[in-house]
Design a protein around this nucleic acid. Structure first.
Length: 284
DNA sequence: CAGATGCCCTGGGCGC
DNA sequence: TGCGCCCAGGGCATCT
């Protein structure tokens, strides 16, 4: 469930806290969280003594750039995906003990910790093999990031209308646009008045421009409110606080309740192994 | 190329 | 109170 706004909230929290901190060691107790690496000890071996430089984000992926202690060594980039239930929690030296499922912990030299907690273990943490253009090579297949990259409305509309897939599938396709999941694709499509199963090549130029506009508006509004935490309360920011954008959802998880635009009951449909929420009246 | 399905995984909600 | 069932879903592999 963490999607772009939740990852961005975490990025901002980390960026204000960890740059300049020195990694004393990395403790990995959940091998599945580091499954991209054959050796779970690799993170510790490569990050010991490095200094956190900056925190970035591509779609739902967070990137932490660190400078190794050797002056001529290349920058290391630690990549984190929160998956379904992942949290990155900052713990200052006086913080409570590690919660269950703290699979990867960066211990900083002054005793603070960055804890990767992930009960369902869909998330992952790995060290990038290197850069490709302006992002880690492992993220090269991701599409543009709506808040970071300058893909304008007309270009977005052209790309969307040149494809022939159900529009919700397209919005959730990380190689088309990076960062949208089930929640925000439903919210964007409701705001744009389009049903989840509209074929993207039947969407008018104006409607496609509106999808782009609504996407930016909704993502920015959600970031301002710290993202969305659902009823499972899994999503938290780096201080363990819940998001507040779920209070602004207009369709997601509102099955049977009146559409806030027209009053028609919101419909939930099992779709692609997930749920899709839409207003059968305002969305065509 | 697009879509459908199944897998990974655990906590929480539910029925009994 | 407790047990078993089932669901949530991001990303990926596989098939049609």
């Amino acid at each position: 469930m963490p999607e772009l706004p939740e990852a961005e909230t975490v990025r901002r929290g980390l960026r204000s806290r960890i740059p300049g901190r020195v990694v004393e060691r990395v403790e990995v107790s959940g091998a599945r969280s580091v499954r991209r690496h054959e050796d779970p000890g690799l993170l510790d071996a490569r990050l010991r003594g490095s200094v956190v430089h900056d925190v970035g984000r591509v779609g739902k992926f967070l990137t932490v750039a660190l400078h190794p202690p050797a002056p001529d060594a290349a920058v290391e980039v630690l990549v984190v995906h929160l998956g379904m239930s992942g949290q990155l929690l900052m713990a200052e030296p006086d913080a409570p003990p590690r919660p269950r499922h703290s699979h990867v912990v960066l211990v900083f030299s002054e005793g603070s910790e960055l804890r990767f907690v992930d009960p369902r273990t869909f998330g992952q943490v790995f060290l990038s093999a290197g850069p490709a253009h302006d992002r880690p090579v492992e993220l090269a297949g991701l599409g543009f990031d709506p808040l970071e990259d300058g893909v304008r409305g007309p270009e977005f509309a052209r790309r969307l209308r040149s494809r022939r897939s159900m529009i919700k599938s397209l919005l959730m396709d990380q190689s088309f646009v990076a960062g949208l999941g089930n929640i925000y694709s439903d919210e964007i499509l409701h705001a744009a008045g389009l049903r989840y199963d509209r074929r993207s090549d039947t969407v008018s130029e104006d409607a496609a421009l509106d999808v782009h506009r609504q996407m930016l508006r909704i993502l920015r509004a959600s970031v301002r409110r710290g993202g969305s935490s659902l009823s499972d309360r899994q999503y938290r920011d780096v201080d363990g606080r819940l998001g507040r954008y779920q209070q602004r959802h207009r369709v997601f998880a509102r099955e049977g309740r009146p559409c806030l635009t027209c009053g028609t009951p919101i419909v939930r449909l099992p779709w692609g192994g997930r749920s899709t929420f839409f207003c059968p009246s305002c969305q065509r």
